[in-house]
Design a protein around this nucleic acid. Structure first.
Length: 260
DNA sequence: ATGCCTTGTCGCACAAGA
């Protein structure tokens, strides 16, 4: 079973690139972030034609997440629990039935948090606390669970080209990185790091300043596995060749392979 | 120090991203 996460930076702008990569890689389950579309306007047909069931949690203009699965969805939950006043669409969770049993997957678009001297940064940190609380309730189920998405956190210095360039940024603040570690210390496995200790395994390159050509990247797209899923982790691939296609997203797909 | 690009918006510049 192969599960992918990919911030596509606008589904309507990716109607060539996204189906092309899905046709090439053919993951069983896909977590999209930043669909930038309301649910009614999401162009599901190009994905359904490739054999995927599609569920979305969108909003107008910004944010928005989706799940695609070749297996049918048994249940779907939209929105991160813990704050009924939060109107931003950044979380969708579903359960599928595999031959080995149930698999729970969430697509996560964690707030960016910049600039850090505005209310966007405390919103990010509050969102991370909510995520930790909900994730802990999922760990208690002792199921195979994967929390996949754009976490907007650079975990360690080796996850960016030049840490000095990110010092004042919400993605690399001590509070952001501490919240990330707190989440992992509850029992979640950072799948890429579990199988690949090399520095410079980036998942995002800015559109600006020739960042891709200079390899000024960062690793912010992550697959977190519950113990029951991590036990079955076989490998993780960062499909960075997609960053060099026409009309790319600034993020690239990350694909985990599991014995499921 | 800032913008550099890209996307979406009831556009005709701007917000947001990271």
């Amino acid at each position: 079973m192969r599960i992918a996460t990919w911030n596509i930076n606008g589904v309507k702008a990716r109607l060539e690139t996204a189906p092309a990569w899905l046709a090439e890689s053919s993951p069983d389950i896909v977590c999209f972030q930043e669909i930038k579309s309301v649910d009614e306007a999401f162009p599901a047909e190009p994905f359904e034609r490739l054999g995927y069931n599609v569920v979305t949690h969108g909003q107008k203009g910004f944010n928005g997440v989706a799940l695609l699965s070749k297996l049918p969805f048994d249940e779907v939950t939209r929105g991160l629990p813990g704050d009924d006043t939060d109107v931003q669409s950044r979380y969708i969770e579903a359960v599928v039935s595999t031959p080995q049993g149930a698999l729970r997957v969430a697509s996560i678009y964690l707030p960016n948090g910049n600039p850090i001297d505005t209310d966007k940064f405390p919103y990010k940190l509050a969102w991370m606390r909510r995520l930790r609380a909900h994730a802990a309730s999922l760990l208690a189920l002792e199921e195979r669970t994967l929390l996949c998405g754009d976490y907007n956190v650079i975990p360690e210095p080796e996850d960016c080209f030049d840490p000095r360039a990110w010092m004042g940024d919400a993605l690399y603040q001590p509070e952001s990185r501490a919240a990330w570690r707190t989440l992992l210390n509850d029992g979640w496995t950072d799948c890429l790091r579990a199988v690949d200790g090399r520095p410079g395994r980036y998942t995002f390159w800015d559109y600006q300043a020739g960042a891709r050509q200079k390899n000024w990247g960062i690793r912010i797209d992550h697959i977190l596995a519950s113990p029951q899923a991590a036990d079955r982790l076989r490998g993780v691939a960062i499909e960075d060749h997609v960053r060099d296609w026409d009309k790319p997203s600034d993020h690239v797909p990350v694909v985990g392979t599991f014995d499921l």
